[in-house]
Every structure is written in C-alpha cells, then in structure tokens.
C-alpha cells in the first residue's frame, strides 16, 4: 500500500539554514496494517504523515501510494487522492467553526462530485455514535465528540488509509479510549492505519511501531500481543 524509499524533507528557515525534518526514510506498509509512529517531539512524525497524506511533497526520495509514484501527480490529482483514498484525523480536530457536525462530515462529498448526500453523512455520524448531535456546532460538542465527528468526516468517502496525528492528544482517558475503539474497528474492517502518538497506552493498539529520532527511523518492530485491545473492546 505504501512504499517509501530514501524519503527526505528539509525546510528552509531563511538565514538559519535548513531544517532536516526527515532524512532518508525507507519502509513499506502493507494493506490492512496498524502502524504507530513514535519519537520525541520534533523528530519528524507529523512531517512523515503529511508526506504520506499527499499534503506535502518530499525534498527527495520516492513515495509510491498503491503502486503509483505520487511525485508525478499534479495538485488536482493529489487532492483527489486525499479526498477518496485517505482520511485525516488531527490532534486539534480541525472542524470548521460555525458549521454543524453534519455539514462538517459532508465536506469531503463537496470535493468528491458535489453530490452532498445527507443520508450518507448521517450514517457516518451514526457509526461514531453521534447521530443525535448532527445539528450541533463544534463549540457545543465535547472534545471527544468533536474528534468522533472528525473521524466520521474522515470515513465518509470510505478511504483505505487512515492517518491519525495524535488523535487522543487533546482528550481525556475515556474519550481517548472511545476514539481508539473506533480506530480499532476501522482496522478490523481492513483499513490501513498509521497513527502518531506519545501515549504508551494508545500505542498498544498497533501491531507495528516505527520509531523516529531526528528525522531517521531508528527502529521498526512488531509489537507483542494485543490482549489489551480486547480488554478495551470489552469495556466499551
């Protein structure tokens, strides 16, 4: 599903020279994997996710998404991939303000073909247990609820890849567990999930861990067992 070869990303900071956010990173992720990306703050985790999510372009290296070299794609084609193949979930939810939950969930449909289908959006909200909050505005929802609306938005076009950048970072334990429960279900449906987190509890949901330091992958290992996830599943 994802093949990354010698991927690098540098940011110029004017006089202060270049920041090497990612340096020669190579790995593959197969369809259906649940991978957690870990590392200290500033180690390049978000940068990696943005590159994989086609929101950013690498300085060098190769990135094949579903076998296609994304480097050749124009803005419109990248937008299409983000719209149909990838669902983003962010730490800060990133819902549109003054916009109801359901309208937020519908947003990807606007850029799919413009056919905004209320029923589909409502089904997506139902999926995350928030059908009753469809007409609420983000500032009327708790953090956990906002994040679930964001998940419904990420799901509406049924993408194969979910990219979650510290999705529980702004949530308390319980809301975080709810969000992770939903991600786990999505994984069980066969979706590929790439998760960034600082939280050991959250990291345990994944089966594989990529560890970054100063923009390089210093460890790529399979995580042992997943009895923990069943426990949470039971608690829900």
């Amino acid at each position: 599903m994802i093949q990354v070869t010698d991927l690098s990303k540098s940011y110029s900071r004017g006089d202060k020279g270049l920041v090497h956010a990612l340096v020669d990173v190579s790995f593959e992720i197969a369809k259906g994997e649940f991978v957690v990306v870990r590392g200290a703050s500033g180690s390049g985790k978000s940068t990696l996710l943005n590159l994989i999510g086609c929101l950013d372009v690498p300085t060098s290296g190769r990135y094949l998404f579903a076998g296609e070299d994304v480097a050749d794609y124009r803005d419109k084609q990248l937008a299409r991939i983000r719209n149909q193949k990838i669902g983003f979930i962010f730490q800060s939810f990133n819902l549109l303000p003054r916009t109801t939950a359901i309208e937020n969930v519908e947003l990807p449909l606007v850029y799919l073909d413009g056919r905004v289908d209320r029923k589909r959006a409502l089904a997506a909200l139902e999926r995350v247990g928030l059908a009753a909050r469809a007409r609420h505005f983000p500032n009327e929802l708790s953090g956990g609820e906002q994040q679930r609306v964001a998940i419904a938005r990420a799901l509406i076009n049924s993408p194969g890849l979910i990219l979650a950048d510290e999705p529980t970072g702004n949530l308390d334990q319980k809301a975080g567990a709810e969000v992770m429960g939903i991600l786990q279900e999505l994984h069980k449906e066969g979706r590929t999930i790439l998760l960034v987190t600082h939280d050991d509890e959250v990291a345990r949901y994944a089966r594989r861990e990529l560890f970054l330091r100063d923009g390089r992958i210093i460890s790529d290992r399979t995580l042992p067992g997943h009895g923990h996830s069943t426990a949470i599943g039971g608690a829900r």
């Binding site: 929101l55 419109k76 937008a79 299409r80 719209n83 983003f88 990133n94």
Partner: peptide, 16 residues
Amino acid sequence: RNEVGVRRSVGASQSD
C-alpha cells in the same frame, strides 16, 4: 487559514 487547510486536507484542490 485553518478552514482552507481543512478543506485542502479533505480533498479541495487549489482551484476549488
């Protein structure tokens, strides 16, 4: 800016 970023992330192209 945030709205624009969100729209781009869910599939808006620059021309959209």
